[in-house]
Simulated assay, not measured.
Amino acid sequence: MADWEGKSRGNKTGYGIFISVLKALGVVPAYLLLVFVAAYYFLFSWRSSGFVWSYLRQRQGFTCFQSILKLYSNYYWFGQAIIDRIVMMADIKNRFTFTFEGEAHLRAMVENGQGGLLLSAHIGNWEIAGHLLKRLNTKINIVMFDGEHQQLKQYLENTTGQRNANIIVIRDNLSHIYEIIDALNNNELVCMHADRFLEGNKTLTMDFLNAPAKFPQGPFALATKLDVPVSFVFAMKESLSHYHFFATPAVAYKHQPQASPEMVLEKFAAAMTKQVKAYPSQWYNYYDFWK
Rank of each mutant, 00 (worst) to 15 (best):
E148C: 04
S175I: 02
I140E: 08
E127L: 02
H176P: 00
I177C: 09
H149L: 06
Q151L: 12
I167W: 12
I167R: 08
K153Q: 10
Q162D: 08
L174R: 10
G113A: 06
Y178I: 02
I177Q: 04
N112V: 05
E157G: 05
N112L: 11
T160C: 13
M144Q: 09
N137I: 09
N166I: 14
T160F: 08
D182W: 12
L156H: 10
M144P: 07
H149C: 03
G113W: 03
H176A: 00
I168V: 11
N141Y: 12
R163S: 11
H122P: 00
D146A: 12
A165F: 15
E111C: 05
T159D: 07
G115H: 15
L132C: 04
R171Y: 01
L174H: 11
I181P: 10
S120M: 09
I170C: 04
I140S: 08
L156M: 13
V169W: 14
R135W: 05
Q150V: 15
M144K: 04
I128A: 00
A165I: 09
H122W: 06
I128R: 05
A129I: 08
N137T: 10
H122T: 07
I168K: 02
L174M: 13
Q150M: 13
E148T: 09
S120F: 15
N125W: 07
L119W: 05
A129V: 09
Y155Q: 12
S175R: 14
T159P: 07
T138W: 08
K134M: 05
L174E: 03
N112G: 02
I168S: 00
G161E: 02
N173C: 02
L118F: 11
I181D: 01
L118W: 07
R163E: 09
K139V: 00
Y178K: 03
E127W: 06
Q150E: 14
Y178G: 00
N125A: 06
E127D: 11
F145N: 13
L156W: 15
D172H: 12
I170P: 03
Q154V: 14
K153I: 12
V169H: 03
N158A: 15
G116T: 05
T160L: 15
V169I: 06
E148Y: 15
N185K: 13
A129D: 00
I128G: 05
K153W: 10
D146T: 05
E157Q: 14
N137S: 13
N141K: 08
G130F: 12
N125P: 01
D172K: 14
Q150C: 02
N137F: 14
L136G: 09
E148M: 14
R163V: 10
R135S: 01
I170F: 03
G130K: 15
I177A: 02
I170S: 01
M144A: 08
I142C: 13
L174W: 02
V169A: 07
G124T: 08
I123D: 03
L152Q: 15
Q162K: 08
I180S: 03
V110Y: 04
N164L: 11
L119I: 10
L132M: 03
L132Y: 03
I128F: 03
G147E: 08
W126L: 01
I168C: 03
L136Q: 14
Q162E: 04
I123K: 02
L117M: 06
N185I: 01
G130H: 11
Y155F: 15
R171P: 05
I180Y: 10
Q162H: 11
M144I: 09
R171L: 01
Q162W: 11
A121V: 02
N185Q: 12
